[in-house]
Design a protein around this nucleic acid. Structure first.
Lengths: 259, 259
DNA sequence: AAATACTATTTCGTATAGTATTTTGCCAAA
DNA sequence: TTTGGCAAAATACTATACGAAATAGTATTT
C-alpha cells in the first residue's frame, strides 16, 4: 500500500473561510427577505446572530457594498439597499438588451459539447418544474431564469461581459424574489401597488410558460451554432419580458427624458 | 448677522473614515505601480506602511477584490491581479462597443446644459494638454480619456450602465498606465514585447491627437442633441482605438473561436 | 416652543492574542 | 547534486476587548 503515503491527509476537509461563508450567509439572508430592503444592518447583532466575530462581518459587508446590495453611510452604519425603482428597472432592461443578445450570439459561436449538455439539462429541468404547484412554481422559475441567463453569459466566453452580468443581475433577481413573495397580498385586496400590479401581470397569466418556451428557442439556436437566430431570440425574449412587466414603458422613458 | 447662527458648525471637517481612505490609497498605489500586478499584498506590512490597523486594510482589500483589482486566495493572502491578457483586452473592447455607443446616444438625448458645459470644458482641457511635453502628455491624455468616457456614461442617465462601465474601465485604465510607464523601455532595445509593441503603435505616432479629435466629434454630436451621430462617432472611435492597439485583432478572435 | 445639555447607542478603529495554514530553509538520503 | 520530508518561521484568519467619536434620543432650561 504505497498509496497511503502519497495520499496522506489530502482528504481532510478544507477549513472554512468565515469571511466567505459570512458573505454568502448575509447575501442569502437578503435574498430570503430576512434582511428587508431599507433595514439597518448592525454589525454586532449580525456577529452574534451568525456566531462569528466582527471581522468576517466587516469584510462581508464591504464586499456586499460594492455589489450595491448593502449601502454604507459614514458613521451611521450599513443598511440594505432599496429595491429597484421603476426607472432603475427600465435601465436594467435597456442594459440587458445591449449585452445579452450579444452574449447569446457569441455563445452560439463558442459553446462546446459540455456547454450544450449543460444548457439542455437546464431546459429539461425547467420543463419539469412547470408541473410544480403554485407554491414552488414561481420560485423555481425565477431560479431557473437566473441560471439560464447566467449560463449564456458564461458561454459567451467574455469575462468582462459575464462579470457585468453578474453584478447587475443580482438586483433583478432580488426584485423578482420580492415580487414573488408578495403573492399572498394580491388576491384579497384591491389596492394595486406597483409590485402587486407587476406580479399579476407577470406570473398569474401563463405561469411562466412563455418564458420557458422562449428559453427553449434560444437554447436551440445556441446549440445549433446559429448566432444570428440566438441573438434575435434573446433580444425578443428580453423585450417581451420587459413588456410584460411594464406595458407602459414608453411612458417611463418619456418621464426620463423630461426629468 | 443672522446668518452666523444658521451656518453654525456646518463647516467642521468631517472625521475621516479610515477604511475609505485606505481603500483609495491602496487603489492609488496600484495605479502608481507601487503595487505591481502579481505582487503579494501583505496585510501587516500595509498596515504598518499606511499607519493604520488591520481592520481598515481588510475592508479596503475586500472592496478591491470585488473590483478584481486584488485577488484573494484562501489562507494564502491577497495579491494584485495580473494585467489584462490579449484576450481579455479584446473582450473589454467588445464590451465597450456594446455599451458606450448606446451611452453616447442616450447622453445626446438626455444631457442638460450643465452637462454640456462639463463636457465642453473637458474637451478644452484636453486640447490644452496636447502641448505638454512627452513626459506629461501621455499621462494627461490617459487621464482625460478616462474622464471623458466616464462623463458620457454618467450622462447616459443609466445607473446600471454607468456602474458596469466603472467596474470594467479601471482595468483598461491600469493597463494603459502600465503601457505608458514602459515608455523608457522602447527606444534602446529591439526586443518587442506585447506591451512595447502596443506603446509604439498607440502613442508614438500621433501623440493622441487622433483620439482627441474623435472625442471632439463625439462631444459635438452630444451637445447638439444628435443621438444617431453621437452613437456612430463613439462606435468608430472605440473601433479605431482597438485597431490601433491590435491591428491583428482578427487573429485574436480566430484564436478565441478555436480555443 | 426652541435651544441646550445630557445620556445612550452605535460606529469606527486599535491592540493583542491564539490557532490554522502556508512557506521556507535545512538536513538527510538516494 | 538532487530529491524528499520535516521543523521553524511567517502569514492568514478569527476572537475579544477596549476606547474615542459621532449620532440619536431624551430631558432640561430658557
Amino acid at each position: 500500500m504505497p498509496q497511503s503515503k502519497l495520499v496522506k491527509v489530502k482528504a481532510q476537509p478544507r477549513r472554512s473561510i468565515l469571511s466567505d461563508e459570512t458573505y454568502l450567509m448575509i447575501r442569502a439572508m437578503i435574498f430570503a427577505h430576512e434582511i428587508v430592503p431599507g433595514d439597518r444592518v448592525n454589525i454586532d447583532a449580525l456577529a452574534v446572530q451568525l456566531g462569528v466575530s466582527q471581522t468576517p462581518i466587516r469584510e462581508a459587508l464591504a464586499r456586499l457594498e460594492s455589489e450595491d446590495l448593502i449601502a454604507k453611510e459614514a458613521l451611521k452604519g450599513y443598511r440594505a439597499t432599496n429595491l429597484l425603482t421603476v426607472t432603475e428597472f427600465a435601465d436594467l432592461f435597456s442594459f440587458r438588451l445591449l449585452i445579452e443578445p450579444y452574449a447569446a450570439e457569441q455563445a452560439a459561436i463558442l459553446i462546446d459539447s459540455k456547454g450544450i449538455k449543460e444548457l439542455q439539462s437546464e431546459i429539461s429541468n425547467a420543463k419539469e418544474a412547470i408541473n410544480f404547484n403554485d407554491e414552488r412554481l414561481i420560485e423555481a422559475i425565477t431560479e431557473h431564469d437566473a441560471r439560464f441567463h447566467a449560463l449564456i453569459a458564461k458561454y459567451s466566453n467574455n469575462k468582462t461581459l459575464a462579470s457585468a452580468f453578474t453584478n447587475t443581475h443580482c438586483h433583478l433577481h432580488l426584485f423578482r424574489l420580492y415580487v414573488a413573495s408578495q403573492k399572498h397580498l394580491i388576491e384579497p385586496s384591491d389596492k394595486t401597488s406597483f409590485i402587486q400590479d407587476l406580479f399579476s401581470r407577470y406570473y398569474q397569466s401563463d405561469r411562466g410558460q412563455l418564458a420557458i418556451k422562449q428559453h427553449t428557442a434560444i437554447a436551440k439556436a445556441i446549440c445549433a451554432h446559429n448566432p444570428e437566430k440566438a441573438k434575435a431570440e434573446m433580444y425578443s425574449h428580453i423585450e417581451s419580458s420587459l413588456k410584460r412587466f411594464t406595458p407602459d414603458l414608453h411612458k417611463v422613458q418619456t418621464d426620463r427624458k423630461t426629468s
